[in-house]
Design a binder for these strands. Structure first.
Lengths: 223, 223
DNA sequence: GTCTATAGTTCGATAGAC
DNA sequence: GTCTATCGAACTATAGAC
């Protein structure tokens, strides 16, 4: 990490490169240590930038944190909307396909070490399951709209699913999605190595099937 | 809070009362702000105790944090084992009953404001879904043994469920349990007030049914 | 066992030169 | 736009009186 920071500081930043480097380093630091555990000094060092630049560009540590979330959340939710639109265009809107459209963007991002997505999903899992005021506010800001899109889609796709049941189904799906997008090695450990965190498609397929039958059961309480 | 702390400091602590007061205050502070966000000074103030006592009794902030988790985890997992034992004694071991035995102790604790359990479950949801080294270590220490108990129980109860599928089912159940034990108001908000966080039995029943059919689907991939 | 006082760091943020 | 230098506050932890 120290070597990478040095390399980065050796070449001068060009148009907007400093901001991106700070966001990258902040993403890693916040994911590893949380909001209070990460320090602006360590973030600056990780970015190969001067600590004062954080306040110059973002104003405060708090604003930097939210900027880290905002940067990726837009793309994630756009991919979800695109996948839903593609399903409609192809006339292939099944319950399983809708759930897949919800989970796949984050779960695959969480296993994309090349673009650093794994750091972001670790951070997002913290925020999405956090009960502190900051986490609740940020989750609401960036994920309420997409939640309502998918809740409506679930109601339209699963016969007999009322709104309350759709909300339950959505929140259950998200809870499982969170556990999949930020691997801790626990899955592999408890299965004595049989389940591999790297096998994203197998994890997703099993999760989608699990959630789909669960939602159908919520739609038919007597069944 | 300040008033409560004052009241507490006005009456002298008796046998072990200071330790318990510190643990209570630490539970609240760690739940609200996380490990780094909570300060030993604020915890001492909340307990109506001197800040130096934290180190006298627990040695370090780190050790205090683990003591907070340890204090309640034993009781939670004992209740789970007791519930399983009661099911066996009554010959009523169904998949639904096993899942209920897993989730009910934490979910009910999370809505027990009288004994302060809600603070603990907020903290536990952070730790259980955290990917930092401390969270992973603590989760492993206090919840690996009970995980294996329930994974074995699922395999014995759901016909055709192999170990890998049982691990998937267990982790999905726990993920949903985490989302239920630390309410954020999101469930109520997304359902426009129809779903009430206080209705623990309804939430638990719906979750148990959801998880049970999901696990049965994992047992019969072709079904 | 409980307190005061403080050591020794480290924090977020900013002022001001360039 | 990027840097150095630093402020004032807050932190964990400990020493030592009682």
């Amino acid at each position: 990490m120290s070597k990478s920071a040095t390399q980065r500081s050796e070449r001068a930043f060009e148009r907007g490169e400093a901001q991106e480097a700070i966001l990258d380093a902040a993403e890693i630091a916040f994911a590893a240590s949380g909001f209070h555990g990460a320090t602006t000094r360590a973030i600056a060092e990780g970015a190969g930038a001067n600590a004062a630049l954080i306040h110059y560009y973002f104003g405060s540590k708090e604003a930097l944190f939210e900027a880290v979330i905002a940067r990726r959340s837009g793309a994630i939710n756009q991919e979800r909307r695109d996948r839903l639109a593609a399903l409609h265009k192809a006339g292939a809107v099944t319950l399983e396909a809708v759930i897949d459209a919800l989970l796949r963007p984050t779960v695959t991002l969480g296993h994309d070490s090349a673009r650093g997505g794994a750091h972001f999903t670790r951070l997002l899992s913290h925020v999405a399951s956090g009960t502190d005021e900051r986490s609740v506010r940020i989750t609401s800001t960036y994920y309420d709209a997409i939640a309502r899109v998918f809740i409506d889609e679930l109601m339209a796709t699963a016969p007999g699913l009322d709104r309350a049941a759709a909300v339950r189904g959505y929140l259950n799906a998200v809870a499982i999605g969170i556990s999949l997008m930020a691997p801790t090695g626990r899955r592999q450990m408890l299965s004595d190595g049989v389940l591999r965190e790297e096998d994203v498609d197998a994890m997703l397929d099993a999760a989608v099937r699990f959630i789909a039958v669960g939602i159908r059961a919520l739609a038919r309480p007597s069944g």
